[in-house]
């Protein structure tokens, strides 16, 4: 475990906590895409099936349980909690997220390291995670008033991806045979999707103005 990965994991954890804080404490999910949250729940459910087959560390298992638990509880909150559900921007959150799931599944069936059930699902989760933020980015673009917590949530998620790239560069130079093209390319695609958001986020921060994405 290097400092970049630990920082990346902590940033990821912070993003989830920010979102839970907004939903649990303020009882609002305004500006949060349920489509993206559903995709993350699928991502973690398919990637972390190895909880049952392999053990890496207590840290690894605990974090997996945290991300599984938080992603499913966010989805349940948004769908079934009366007050939270009322604040959901249903009319704006119209991205056809199932159109992302099928191509990712097909791609995982075609491009993978090993053709086994767990390996294909693991690869599918990598491809799906890369594009899972898209419904959220579209919703942000449509939302007139992006509140601070929603902006911070997306900023932290993007930061987590950026730190993972630094982690891979570090591991490539320090660990022999650390080459993982599928992980790297999907991770790079995922990080690039945030580039636009990062630009406007830094602008709003610099000018001390409310974050607003151009249509």
């Amino acid at each position: 475990m290097n400092i970049f990965r630990l920082a990346g994991d902590m940033t990821h954890l912070a993003s989830v906590l920010v979102l839970l804080l907004k939903i649990h404490t303020i009882k609002s999910c305004a500006g949060v895409s349920l489509k993206t949250q559903e995709l993350y729940a699928i991502v973690f459910a398919t990637r972390y099936l190895d909880i049952f087959t392999s053990f890496y560390s207590i840290y690894n298992t605990l974090m997996k349980l945290v991300f599984l638990g938080s992603s499913f509880s966010i989805v349940l909150y948004m769908k079934y909690h009366k007050t939270v559900h009322r604040s959901y921007d249903r009319e704006q959150d119209t991205f056809r997220h199932w159109f992302l799931v099928l191509p990712c599944l097909l791609l995982a069936l075609l491009i993978h390291e090993k053709f086994t059930f767990l390996e294909v699902l693991w690869t599918f989760s990598l491809y799906l995670e890369a594009v899972a933020i898209l419904p959220q980015l579209v919703l942000l673009q449509r939302t007139r008033n992006i509140d601070n917590l929603t902006g911070q949530y997306v900023f932290l998620l993007g930061g987590y991806r950026g730190l993972y790239i630094l982690n891979w560069i570090y591991r490539y130079f320090t660990e022999p045979h650390f080459v993982h093209w599928i992980t790297w390319i999907s991770g790079l695609v995922q990080t690039l999707l945030y580039a636009d958001f990062f630009f406007y986020y830094s602008q709003s921060w610099k000018n001390n103005k409310k974050l607003q994405l151009p249509a």
């Binding site: 990965r5 660990e175 992980t183």
Partner: peptide
């Protein structure tokens, strides 16, 4: 092995 190394990540 090398593919195990990627799966120790989250």
């Amino acid at each position: 092995s090398s593919d195990e190394a990627a799966k120790d990540e989250l």
